[in-house]
Design a protein around this nucleic acid. Sequence first.
DNA 1: TGGTAACAGTTACATCTGAAACTATCAAGC
DNA 2: GCTTGATAGTTTCAGATGTAACTGTTACCA
Lengths: 160, 160
Amino acid sequence: MDQRTNADDRDTAFTLETFLPYRLVRIAERVSREFAENYREKYGLSRPEWRCLATLGQFGTITSKEIGESTAMHKTKVSRAVAELDRRGWLKRRPDSHDRRAEQITLTAAGRKAFRDMVPLAEAFETSLHASLGRNAAAQLLSGLDRLERHYRLAPHDHE
Amino acid sequence: MDQRTNADDRDTAFTLETFLPYRLVRIAERVSREFAENYREKYGLSRPEWRCLATLGQFGTITSKEIGESTAMHKTKVSRAVAELDRRGWLKRRPDSHDRRAEQITLTAAGRKAFRDMVPLAEAFETSLHASLGRNAAAQLLSGLDRLERHYRLAPHDHE
DNA sequence: TGGTAACAGTTACATCTGAAACTATCAAGC
DNA sequence: GCTTGATAGTTTCAGATGTAACTGTTACCA
């Protein structure tokens, strides 16, 4: 609202602080980083690895391609994250019987255990964040995000 | 709401799709990337460079440290972005007379011109995005973001 | 059947990034 | 004045990333 001395005080009263793309990236990075502490400390997982773990935990058996579609991660990112989870013995890959280019990926018992360990942390994080924002603000935020995601055709909202 | 076949159908009904940190990062990256097309195509600027340009455009003369504080960018990121803008002749640095560790940075005429060229694009982007979301959803989103930023003590809201 | 284009997934390379080390300066106490 | 610890900014190094090239396979159509 109030303006500090601008370089040239024409009508260029643009402020980065209030610019939506900038605000979104900044706050998203902050929130995401905070939660990342959980899986980093506990398991040394990177964000792509955590996303793959969570996606496999949710869907059961899927291919790398499907992980990529679902998580909006680049296929090389998925490839490397899956390779790392494989190295840990958290998943196993089986060649798809119908398409030998693809692999069907499934969490092993160890992988499922890690996933089940993480779920309560994720839920607690979200609950606590909602609580600090307050019911009303949280609802507004989610509703705004919904709309934004729909505009960008992200997130397969069941209604649509 | 509706659940697909879960790996093990205990109570682990966690879905990444609806997890706030993930949703935020994904949509933020999408929005930011879309706007980044503008300064990338037009000037070949990186995101850190654009942020420095915008911050200098807004504040006039400041130090790298202040750019870092204002944009939430790591000091090495600022250092490299400023170096690049300097290489282009878009800014000049003068040793601070009171503290010779610091440099006072100001946009040159060329830098100010680039900034002034960019401002309308930024404003158009935001206007258009608000329009596609609708007045109501946009307001909710902004209000939710406000609250979130306040919780993380980002964004110097005048009240605080 | 053979040829071509599309596709799943991996790898190579060039770029970007943050942590930590480094340089030069400042501030404070002695 | 001198020592010590903090600070502004740069550089180094190791790790993460995306683009593009690559491998093997599939689909399609002549």
